[in-house]
Structure formats: C-alpha cells, structure tokens
C-alpha cells in the first residue's frame, strides 16, 4: 500500500468537493475491491474520500412498490431487510449470496455498481430489474448506466447516491460460482417487470448484459423454463479463461436462466 491522505466528509457536497480538489483522489465506500487493490500496490490514489459518514447515502426506504436503497447500504443490510424480502425477495437473496459474511458486512450496493466488476452480482440485479440509478446529478436507467468492464456512465465528480427498484411480478437470480473465487462465472437475473421480461447476465462477458434471445423466447413462449429449451446463447465475445471457456459460459447462461425462471415461479 502506498501513502495517501484520508478524509471522511459528512455531506455529499463535501465529498464531491474533496474528490474534485485532487485528480488522483478516489472515493471509498465498502472498500471490498479498493482496499485489496491498494494492498497489492495495484492502485496509488493520493487521497481516499470515505463515504461512510454521509447519512443521506445509507438506508432503505419504501414508497408503494418502489424500493430505494441508499448507495452506502451494506449487502448484509439488504439481505436482512424485511422490506426488500417482502417486495423483491430475489434481490435480498442476491445480496445474501455475495462474497462471505465479512464482505457482506462491509460492501455496499453503490460501491458494487460504481465499480461494475464484470463478475459482480448487483449489476445483474440492477439491470435485470430495470433499476434506476440515482446520482448526485441525475437519474439513469440501469441500461444506460453499465457501459462495460469496470466502466459506468458516471462522470467525474458524480457519485451514486441510491438505487431505485420497482417490485417486479416475479424474479430470481441464479449464479454458477467460480469454484475458487466464488464470483459468478455466469450469473443470470430474470425478472418479469411491468416493462417486460428482462434477463441480465453477469460473469460471462466484459460486463453485465441483457440476453435478448432469452428475453424474446420467454416473451413469446411464456415465462417458463421450458420456453428456453434449445435456445442457445452465442459464445461470441464471452470471456474465456482457465475456469471456463466462452462456449461453456454460453451454455451455462441458458441453463442458469432456466433455473432462475423456475425459481421465480
């Protein structure tokens, strides 16, 4: 780890100001990716701006069928929330399956989606549920927010403040974990929403994406696992590494999607 300065502002404005004052400053939310990266000397920010003491970033609120989760809300809080379990149990289950207890008690939803690790779980949940990403400047549809590997639509000085979810008719997330890291080799979030059926895939490609062939099959043949029989996903552009080839990942997308559809009931 290299030397850096450390600040813990109490307002979003102060955090943005601190980040704006130093081009090499980095915000830290749960730190579950950033801190290990620092320890391995793979990043050298001059300043860390810790978002943990900003009250308006934390907490879960409900308004009708809309669930708003503050950016600094920990995975364990989402997993345990009665409101989340009642409105979108698939999202609570997703949070319950991230990492291990230590990670879940430190990691945050805002940190996860702003980092947009190509094998992270939350991006699949946000994209699959058609969530709205709220920042200090605007609101963005999930479809517009995730732009590729470790890349989002966030501008400089823009922070995720919350994520808004609308209760779907039904939804489920099933992942095939990497046996070593337990990140998703393939994770599939399926949801039947007011805006249609959505199938979001994490782990398989350069970033989270929607499996349109599977969405179309479910829309035309009905929301049932059997509707995906024989529907193949192309391996083109999918990740290939020592754990899984692109061809195997493509196969697993359909299998996990079927299992998610079955689990969504």
């Amino acid at each position: 780890m290299y030397a850096f300065t450390y600040q813990k502002p109490t307002t979003i404005a102060a955090a943005v100001a601190a980040l704006g004052a130093d081009a090499d400053a980095k915000p830290v939310s749960g730190g579950q990716t950033l801190i290990p990266t620092l320890k391995q000397r793979l990043a050298a920010p001059t300043a860390l701006v810790d978002l943990a003491k900003i009250p308006e970033l934390a907490g879960i609120t409900v308004a009708g069928d809309t669930l708003t989760i503050g950016a600094m809300t920990r995975h364990a809080t989402v997993a345990d929330s009665a409101d989340v379990k009642r409105l979108i149990p698939a999202l609570a289950a997703l949070a319950e399956g991230i990492g291990d207890p230590q990670v879940r008690n430190r990691g945050t939803i805002g940190g996860s989606i702003a980092n947009n690790d190509p094998a992270a779980d939350y991006p699949a949940g946000c994209l699959g549920l058609g969530a709205t990403i709220v920042t200090n400047r605007r609101e963005l549809a999930a479809d517009a927010f995730f732009t590729g590997m470790f890349s989002t639509a966030l501008d400089d000085g823009e922070l995720v403040t919350a994520v808004k979810f609308t209760k779907p008719k039904r939804a489920a997330y099933v992942k095939f974990p990497n046996p070593a890291s337990r990140y998703a080799i393939v994770g599939v979030f399926v949801a039947e929403t007011a805006g249609g059926i959505r199938v979001a895939v994490t782990g398989a490609g350069a970033g989270v994406f929607r499996a349109t062939a599977l969405e179309a099959a479910l829309a035309s043949k009905g929301f049932a696992a059997a509707s995906l029989d024989g529907v193949a996903v192309s391996a083109d552009g999918l990740n290939s590494d020592i754990h899984a080839s692109a061809e195997y990942r493509a196969h697993l997308i359909t299998v996990m999607a079927k299992r998610a559809v079955a689990a969504a009931g």
Binding site: P179, A180, S181, Y183, I242, H243
Partner: peptide
C-alpha cells in the same frame, strides 16, 4: 475435483492467488 496449478506456455503462473487456485 478442484486444485490445479496452471502455468501458461511462457511460464507465468496463472493460479497465483486464491481467486484462481481452488482450495
């Protein structure tokens, strides 16, 4: 079922952490 030390053809260790070497 799980463990495998993998080097690439150039001799770089691909399973150099718990992220890739499956205990």
């Amino acid at each position: 079922l799980l463990e495998q030390c993998v080097y690439d053809a150039a001799g770089q260790l691909l399973t150099g952490s718990m992220m890739d070497y499956c205990m």
